[in-house]
Simulated scan of single mutants.
Amino acid sequence: MSPQRLARVSLAVSPVRLAACALAASLVSVSAGAAENGGQRYSAGIGGSDMTAPLMPGWYFQAPVVAYHAKKIKGDNGKQATYQVPPSPPFVPAFTAALDIDTNVRAVQPRITYLDNTRLWGANIGFTMMLPIVQRHADFSLTAPAGAFGPFQSTVQAGLDAQAAQISGHVSGIGDFEMGGILHWELADNQAMTLVTTFVVPTGDYQADRRLNPGFGNFYTFRPSLQYSYIGDGWDFGMRGVLSFNTRNKETGYRSGNVANVDFQLMTFVSEDIRVGLQGFAVKQFQNDSQDVSYLADPSDAATITNGNRMRAYGLGPAIGWLKDGGDMMVEGKFIKEFGARNRTEGQAFWLTISKPLGL
């Protein structure tokens, strides 16, 4: 989220209050993406062993656990994000403040998947559902240019510090529930393709006047994905393309722009039960955010809302997996470092995923 995305502006205009709103607009989620408060419901980089392991009819349980940390917010030019603070006559002119963040997000995303022997259009049909448990912590800061305000320097900085402290905080709770239908095709030459049509509903803990929330907002997301897998004798390869289409948040009037994600994984066995490889992702927003100004206390505040500033980011890192008894259970760990971020945070994520066929 760009610091210029002031999605929920309904306040008296002052440098300190506007600075606080800029901070609020740059909050990060585990998926970190664009959209309202910086949140994207799809976790970039979550795809892993489920893309490079066979999928047979039956029940499956999967529990990805992620720890995400970021200390950077990148602007539209890929450099540290800044915020243009308007003037406060008669003593303080307009100025540019540096925007910083120190955030940690931890989440577990338990998922149940079922694939049936029934076929439709040549594919096995099934379903999947997931309810995340999320913990978010964020400390924000705005820094005025050194020595720019003479005797008012400490006063200006103290005001920015106070507002940043009000927005910073810690929350935990249940996230947004998702469910989807599955069509899985077994193709020739150890190849498979899987189509999942996911709907995400706003079940998570969310308050529109709170800057950190376990849920993303009172809106819905339709998220189709198409996955290709090659399970070979040497290398296993999987790639998933995901599109996220969002409705408008009924509590704020903000509509998060639609986003495209691509995840991939390349793995090879180095022993009978250990495999190693490479994991990566790309995420790019392809539609501007928008704001329904009728939700604002003062419609003139719409001038401070910048629609656009689309986000993007890439990630890459190593992965290692352990198979118990040839596939009775799989444990996978990976580290993904983000780079090339625009209008969002840039950090790193540690993932630990347990996958187990339930054999029912």
Score class of each variant (00 low, 15 high):
L142Q: 02
R119D: 10
A158R: 01
G308M: 09
I320D: 03
T155N: 07
V65D: 08
L296P: 00
D273H: 14
T221H: 00
R5I: 07
V13Y: 04
V259N: 01
L243A: 15
A67T: 06
L243D: 00
K324W: 10
W322R: 15
Q279A: 10
D233R: 10
Q109W: 02
E36H: 05
G238P: 05
A282M: 07
S229D: 04
F91R: 10
F339C: 12
A148D: 09
D263Y: 11
Q163N: 13
M193F: 07
A297I: 10
F339N: 09
P151Q: 12
T197Y: 04
Q207I: 05
P357W: 02
V156H: 06
S294D: 09
N288Q: 11
Q153C: 01
R41V: 01
D289R: 00
M193L: 10
N218K: 13
A349P: 06
L6Y: 04
T247Q: 02
I101L: 15
A22R: 03
S26V: 12
R223C: 02
V13R: 12
H170F: 10
D100I: 11
A164Q: 10
D116A: 15
S43F: 13
L352K: 11
S2A: 08
L183Q: 08
V200F: 00
R111K: 15
T353D: 13
F199R: 02
G326W: 12
T194M: 14
Q153M: 05
V270A: 11
P87T: 06
G181R: 07
V196K: 03
A146S: 15
G58Y: 08
V171R: 11
I305S: 00
M129S: 13
A24W: 01
A12T: 09
Q4C: 00
M1G: 14
L266Q: 04
D325Q: 11
N309S: 12
D328P: 07
D209S: 12
V66W: 01
F219N: 00
T198E: 08
E346K: 13
G257Y: 01
A302Q: 12
A97C: 08
A313K: 15
S290Q: 01
I101W: 02
P93C: 09
F219E: 00
Q153P: 06
N190E: 14
G340Y: 13
R240H: 08
M239K: 00
Q265C: 01
L187I: 14
S355L: 15
V105C: 04
N307M: 05
A12I: 09
A158M: 08
A7S: 15
W121Q: 02
L226V: 15
L6K: 03
Y220I: 01
R41I: 00
N261G: 04
F350W: 12
G333W: 07
R106G: 10
P132K: 12
F286H: 06
R275E: 11
D102N: 15
S43R: 05
D233W: 02
L358S: 08
P57K: 11
I133C: 07
V259H: 00
A302C: 02
L352Y: 12
A148P: 05
V30C: 08
G38K: 03
R136W: 01
A164M: 08
F219D: 00
V156P: 06
Q109H: 05
A22L: 08
P132S: 09
E186A: 12
Q265L: 14
S256A: 14
